[in-house]
């Protein structure tokens, strides 16, 4: 059925393959993503990895040089949205319904942040996701996120790369 995002695609083109082939475009087509400078480094079905480079203009505490928590909000939002998109059989837009962020420990000054997200359940209308931000491994996490995404309209393969979570 074409209105079920979990059923086989009519076009025969899987979102996952499009994402893998256009990894740099996923955040590259999002102005705010470009401004923050984060990018996706790997995509598997329902599982995404990315990096948020440290930049002076993203600092939240000028005394320490630690990156602002609000940068992680956008980074984790996009990782979750991309994981959601990659978990579906059809190419669809997703819109963030809600996002929860827990700050476990401060990021270290002047260091890049790695991120990982997974989409652990998909219904006809909603994708459920979670994500982690860390410097080295998930064992020493900086922040975690949990997000639900509404599945919206079908998306043309030509727009691929736009992992927009809006």
């Amino acid at each position: 059925m074409s209105d079920d995002p979990t059923s086989a695609p009519e076009s025969g083109v899987l979102p996952l393959r499009l994402m893998q082939e256009n990894l740099d475009m996923i955040s590259g087509v999002i102005p705010w993503g470009r401004r923050l400078g984060f990018r996706m480094t790997r995509v598997e079905k329902g599982h995404v990895w990315g990096v948020q480079p440290w930049k002076e203009r993203l600092v939240g505490d000028p005394d320490t040089g630690v990156i602002h928590g609000g940068v992680l909000t956008a980074f984790l939002d996009n990782l979750c949205g991309t994981a959601a998109g990659s978990a579906m059989e059809q190419l669809r837009y997703v819109a963030t319904l809600d996002l929860r962020i827990d700050y476990m420990r401060p990021a270290e000054p002047r260091r890049d942040i790695l991120g990982e997200a997974e989409c652990y359940h998909v219904t006809r209308s909603i994708c459920f996701t979670r994500a982690w931000a860390f410097h080295e491994t998930r064992d020493k996490v900086i922040a975690t996120a949990a997000g639900a995404f509404a599945i919206t309209k079908p998306r043309a393969p030509s727009t691929m790369g736009a992992s927009d979570a809006e």
Binding site: I30, P31, W32, G33, G69, G70, A74, A162, A165
Partner: peptide
């Protein structure tokens, strides 16, 4: 500002930018 856009097709502000604005 244009840089705040999250979805170019509908010119919507990025949710992450709004979240950061509200957090601050």
């Amino acid at each position: 500002q244009d840089k705040l856009i999250g979805n170019v097709a509908i010119r919507a502000i990025h949710g992450g930018a709004i979240g950061a604005f509200l957090e601050i």
